[in-house]
Amino acid sequence: MARLKTYGFYLLVAVIVLQAVFPFYYAILTSLETGQAIFDINYLPAALDWSNYRSMLSSGVFGRQFLNSAVTASAVVVLSLVLATTAAYALARIRFRGRGLLLLTILSVSMFPQIAVLAGLFELIRAFGLFNSLWALVFSYMIFTLPFTVWVLTTFMRKLPVEIEEAAIMDGASALTIIWRVFLPLMWPAMVTTGLLAFIHAWNEFLFALTFLSTDTQRTVPVAIAMISGRSEFEIPWGNIMAASVVVTLPLVVLVLIFQRKIVSGLTAGAVKG
């Protein structure tokens, strides 16, 4: 019985891993094949042909588009975290009228489906003169990343012992010094987690990037991949698409691998009693 349970458990794990990893694995396989080989069903690498990657990277704009994505996502992360930590400090630590309502409002912003705000946002972006600029994306992505980062960081900051802050006040630290020298070092785990999620969101976003950008050189990678076309409208260049998909996935995998070690809890150990 116990053995059955163990087998059952590992079977379930296997199914979950397969479901999560197989699409990516198949993308890698496909990216390494060319011509007719793409349409042969095989589950093990049959060929090792890098020509898809070569043609992707030498096409000229792809590198630029990759850079666009990187710049946009990084800017979103940095701006979100800066705004969210300062906002979280106020929301978690300063008592003011309407604080609860404000928090709920912030959270409710993230409820609207992207498509619902698209038209209005488009007008806004035109009015600001941001159309076809990466700032349009940074601006619009923050509508979705900020509620989340603010909410998570506020919850986290509430859990930090008040005495630490009071000790810093007694030591003569200003509010900004407290945030910068005392809270930030303690909030790393939360910042890394929320920052990573914001980055992934910004990196993968499609709808806004499709709407607010119009030229090839400004596009971000998800849109660029969708727009890769073959020599004729009857040909879909699967090989190139898959090669590009693999290339854009790698940064995310690398980021998660780097930061997963930093996502450790218990950083506040030793501050109070403990």
């Binding site: 005495e163 630490i164 000790a167 006040i169 007694m170 005392v182 070092p185 030793g270 501050a271 009693k273």
Partner: peptide, 20 residues
């Protein structure tokens, strides 16, 4: 007057050391 300018230092029940 701001806490730091009063010339007081405080020892807290929970120590309140900066953990990092």
């Amino acid at each position: 007057v701001l806490p730091a300018k009063r010339g007081c230092a405080m020892v807290f029940q929970s120590y309140a050391l900066y953990p990092h």
